[in-house]
Amino acid sequence: MADSQQDDHEREFDIRWADAAEHKEPSARARMLAARWKHDPPGPVPFRPEPDHVARRHRRSGWVSTVVVLGSVAAVILLLGYFRFTAP
C-alpha cells in the first residue's frame, strides 16, 4: 500500500512528464490579458526612453539629493552646537 502511494506521488509531481506535454495551458493572467487585448489592444511602448532626457534628469537629481543631504547634516551640526552652547 505504501509503495502504490509513493508511486502516485512521484507520478503526480514528475516535472519531466509535465514538460513533455504536447499542450500547455496558459496561466490565468495570460488568459486574462489575451481576452482584454483582443478587444482593446495595448498601444506601442518604447523599449528605452530618450537618452538625453534620462541623462539630464539623473544628473540634476544627483546634485539636488547631495545638496539636501549635506544641508541636513550641516543643520543638525549647527543645532547640536547651539543646544550644547546654550545648555546650563
Rank of each mutant, 00 (worst) to 15 (best):
F83E: 12
A34G: 05
G43K: 14
V54W: 14
L78Y: 11
V45S: 11
A35T: 07
D52I: 04
R56K: 09
A35E: 11
V64H: 12
V69K: 08
T66P: 00
R48W: 12
R56E: 05
A75S: 10
L80V: 13
V67T: 12
P44H: 13
R60D: 06
A74P: 02
I77H: 08
G71M: 01
S61M: 10
K38L: 00
L33K: 11
A34I: 00
H53I: 02
T66N: 07
R56N: 02
V69Q: 03
Y82T: 07
V69E: 03
S61K: 15
R48A: 13
M32C: 01
I77R: 11
G81V: 03
S65K: 14
R48E: 13
S65H: 10
V64Y: 11
V68L: 14
H39A: 14
L78M: 11
G62N: 11
L70C: 14
D40P: 00
R57A: 03
R59T: 02
W63I: 01
G71E: 00
G81Y: 08
L33T: 01
A34L: 02
S72A: 08
W63S: 06
G43Q: 13
H53M: 05
W37S: 04
L80F: 14
R48V: 02
L78I: 03
T66L: 09
W37Y: 15
H39G: 07
P42C: 01
L80H: 12
V73M: 10
A75C: 07
I77K: 10
M32W: 10
R60M: 02
P44I: 00
V68H: 12
H58V: 05
H58N: 09
S61Q: 15
V64T: 15
G62F: 07
A75R: 05
P46R: 11
M32F: 10
R60Y: 03
W63D: 05
A75Y: 08
E50H: 11
S65R: 15
R57G: 01
A75N: 03
M32K: 15
G71V: 01
Y82G: 10
R60I: 01
V73G: 03
V76P: 03
L79C: 04
H39Q: 13
K38G: 00
V68N: 10
S72T: 06
V54P: 04
G43H: 08
V73R: 07
R59Q: 09
D40E: 12
S65E: 08
K38S: 05
P49A: 03
G62C: 05
D40N: 12
P49E: 06
G71H: 05
P49C: 00
T66R: 14
V69D: 00
V67K: 13
R59C: 01
W63V: 02
P44A: 07
F83I: 06
V45L: 14
P44R: 11
R59A: 09
R59Y: 08
T66Q: 07
A75M: 06
P42S: 02
T66Y: 08
D40K: 13
H58Q: 10
M32H: 10
F83D: 05
V67W: 12
A74R: 03
V54Q: 13
F47N: 10
A55K: 15
H58S: 06
P46Q: 04
S65V: 04
A74S: 05
G81M: 12
V76Y: 08
R84G: 12
G71F: 02
I77L: 15
A74M: 02
V73C: 09
P51Y: 10
G81C: 13
L78S: 12
L79I: 01
P46I: 01
